[in-house]
Write a protein that binds this DNA or RNA. Structure first.
Lengths: 240, 240
DNA sequence: TAACATAACTGATATGTATCATATTCTTTT
DNA sequence: AAAAGAATATGATACATATCAGTTATGTTA
């Protein structure tokens, strides 16, 4: 972990380059206190950050990296609820609860800061701007969760695959002219879990998109050749 | 609306009997200010409180009554996201947004207080206890939404009907010994929309529960004769 | 009370989805 | 480089669900 020690010099909140972090909305004093007391760790790809049923001790903020937030159903079938990326809060669903109802796993090497509850509670009491930002974040996540709830119950497998591709585009996509390259570490299984599908279903529909030239491959990456086709397919769900 | 004027005497926050209202967590001064500036209205059964796409001006609190919160999918298929009852916040998903992404309709005559955003923002800034209560409420709603997201994508129609019956029990159920009487104004269509189903599906599965004596009728009310059968059927989704 | 409109219910059928079995490709390990 | 294991892919089949058409019941209005 020499790597960790070398990097940790960047983890003073004041000089931290992560501009999306909510701690940036704190007063100078509070930012200093967080800087002193937070614990910053590296999570390797596949490593568990917290798991379903484990105790809530505080809140996490992603310095950099990517995390999948999931929930295990019966017979171990998982549903991916959300991806969290640089600057995102993580574990905020646990606010006011004793145990996490969901789990979080790093899907690439990630640097994540942890702030314990007593400190977190103190700073949100004192920093209105940060607080409003967090409340607005909760509200937007609630809207997103409910929109997906409706979508999952109404979409066909084909549409779920299209939506999953769009969600992955937002997280992993790199634009190349018209095309979007999905450089993602996700397995087909995990891609299927975004839309609550089986891997076979995902693969079959994906291959239909490939036959239609909407999607392609390059260096084993999925390439979305015609993003607008997906957008049109899903437009009936996204209007307003 | 003479009825309204007569009742409005009860709507001074200080003397209001609604103990679950978050305003009860405010300071005396703030409660007085809310009491003066809020607008209390009666919504008749079926009346729209706010609709999808309408502008967010503030927040609602249910003095008494019952409200369905829904989202319209394509070809007008609706998904009921949640029921809100006495003391609940309503419209809080709109926090930080310009427009509502969801709609709310009274499903029985309801008395609802409205607080505009400037006032709401002022009081949550100043009242930490209220604020923490609201944040915990957001977190719990997020957990509930995500749990239902998983359930909707994994449950069979039979299980969705069982879950819908449980959800209705929590809102409309009156316990009579072992049995639960569902005295609800919901149509079959609306019951189906709780679980994202078609009314035919709901009715068919409901009748199978009736054939199995798990559910029955009395005075046109649905009676859940054996609540434990539903609980067992859903136990695989609720463990942890 | 009759007529109408809405809601509730039933059955048949087509479509879509889940599951299983198996084949192929890729990746990792020795 | 060979072998083993994992991930990906494909096809066949059974099952569940969606949809449609039509019937019965209920409630509302004139």
């Amino acid at each position: 972990m020499a790597n960790f020690l070398k990097m940790s010099a960047n983890y003073f909140c004041k000089t931290c380059p992560q501009k999306n972090c909510v701690i940036k909305l704190c007063s100078e004093d509070d930012m200093q206190e967080v800087s002193d007391k937070k614990e910053t760790s590296i999570y390797r790809k596949g490593q568990v950050i917290f798991s379903e049923g484990s105790t809530v001790f505080g809140i996490y903020i992603i310095h950099n990296g990517k995390v999948k937030v999931y929930n295990t159903g019966f017979n171990l079938k998982q549903q991916i609820l959300r991806f969290s990326v640089d600057g995102d809060l993580l574990g905020h669903r646990g606010f006011g609860a004793k145990k996490y109802s969901i789990g979080a796993i790093a899907i690439e090497d990630s640097v994540i800061c942890f702030i314990d509850n007593p400190l977190y509670y103190r700073i949100i009491k004192r920093n209105t701007e940060m607080l409003f930002h967090i409340m607005a974040f909760y509200a937007s996540e609630l809207r997103a969760a409910e929109a997906r709830m409706k979508n999952l119950s109404q979409m066909s497998v084909r549409e779920k695959v299209a939506e999953s591709l769009q969600i992955m585009s937002a997280i992993f996509g790199k634009k190349e002219k018209e095309r979007i390259v999905l450089d993602t570490p996700l397995t087909r299984q995990e891609m299927a879990e975004i839309g609550g599908m089986r891997p076979e279903q995902f693969i079959k529909e994906l291959n239909i998109f490939i036959a239609d030239k909407v999607v392609g491959f390059s260096d084993k990456n999925i390439i979305i050749n015609k993003p607008h086709v997906l957008t049109e397919l899903l437009s009936i769900y996204n209007q307003q």
